[in-house]
């Protein structure tokens, strides 16, 4: 059993490496900016969803307020850069650190809550932050922040025309999120989290410090999501509270993981690869009318997948593997 597990982990790592190399080489062949843009978004959502999955999938603490950390990352970077001229790279780390600390502070208060009460608390906290940012004049209030372009440079992480640098950064981020998950899956923390998810009381009685393991998951998850937020701010160079902190965004972040397979290593990436291009394509091909046809298609798709494959798209693969054995 152990060797089989080790084998699977090695195979996962090799598959991931191959996929990363393919993704890295793809831009050499795909020059279309529109397609490259979709690739950036897909990788970004894969990274975000993977990070969300750490707290909500592995540890079982369903958070529908992760837009808070995304927004904090985006705002920290954007504010530090526009107000104090701090380079986005430092802003990124600062945003991650702030988010991780806030996630632990909120976790300290919220982790006593269970089930729906916890989920609603996460929504409500993100919503309070959204309203505060909408009314915070120094941070641009509801209008948001425009990040001025000061010419292409890696130092300032701004590129007016080329999407490639963003694509490689998003790819790196997605790989980091995946690797962190891969590494945690077989670590002490990973086992604690799954124990906490399945039965917190039993886990506690066997010596797992439930509270601390939840805190750890929250910090890692928030840190990574905030980095994603910083990246997004640099990528679109304009942020406003609704688009980076809104409740919709919390759901969008969770969606790839849920459709792909919550609490699995491959679920978020698989979900993002299928969902994000579909979203973007329906938006540009049938959304042009402005009459919500894209919403109808998109919504119907979500209903269909979540009903047909409750364990997510990865279950299709594991089922085939099971049959082959």
């Amino acid at each position: 059993m152990d060797t089989q597990f080790a084998q699977r982990r090695r195979r996962d790592l090799i598959v991931a490496l191959c996929l990363a190399v393919i993704a890295a080489l793809a831009p050499l062949f795909v020059k279309d900016v529109y397609v490259q843009n979709i690739m950036v978004l897909t990788l970004m959502y894969a990274a975000l969803s993977q990070s969300w999955n750490i707290l909500s999938g592995y540890c079982g603490q369903i958070s529908l307020g992760h837009a808070l950390y995304f927004g904090l990352g985006a705002y920290t970077t954007a504010l530090l850069f526009t107000k104090f001229g701090v380079l986005p790279w430092f802003g990124m780390l600062a945003g991650g650190a702030i988010s991780a600390v806030i996630a632990m502070a909120l976790g300290y208060l919220c982790f006593r809550l269970r089930g729906h009460y916890f989920v609603i608390a996460t929504i409500v906290i993100a919503e309070i932050a959204l309203l505060l940012f909408q009314n915070w004049d120094w941070a641009g209030a509801a209008l948001g922040i425009d990040i001025p372009m000061r010419g292409d440079s890696w130092l300032k992480f701004q590129f007016a025309r080329s999407k490639l640098p963003y694509l490689y950064f998003a790819l790196t981020l997605a790989c980091i999120a995946w690797l962190v998950t891969w590494w945690l899956e077989d670590s002490k923390w990973g086992y604690w989290w799954r124990a906490v998810k399945d039965n917190p009381d039993a886990a506690e009685s066997l010596g797992v410090v439930v509270f601390n393991s939840k805190m750890g998951a929250a910090a890692v998850s928030a840190f990574l999501v905030a980095i994603g937020g910083s990246f997004y701010a640099q990528f679109v160079s304009y942020i406003d509270p609704e688009s980076v902190m809104g409740f919709q965004f919390s759901l969008l972040m969770a969606l790839p993981a849920v459709l792909g397979g919550i609490g699995t290593l491959w679920g978020p990436a698989l979900g993002a690869v299928i969902l994000i291009p579909l979203t973007e394509l329906t938006r540009s091909y049938v959304g042009g009318s402005g009459r919500g046809v894209d919403l109808i298609v998109y919504g119907a798709l979500i209903v269909a997948i979540s009903l047909a494959l409750p364990k997510g798209l990865v279950s299709v693969f594991s089922w085939r593997r099971g049959a082959a054995r």
């Binding site: 919500g292 919403l295 109808i296 998109y298 919504g299 979500i302 269909a304 979540s306």
Partner: peptide
């Protein structure tokens, strides 16, 4: 998903 469809 249903909510999105209804809004659409």
């Amino acid at each position: 998903g249903l909510a999105i469809v209804m809004r659409g």
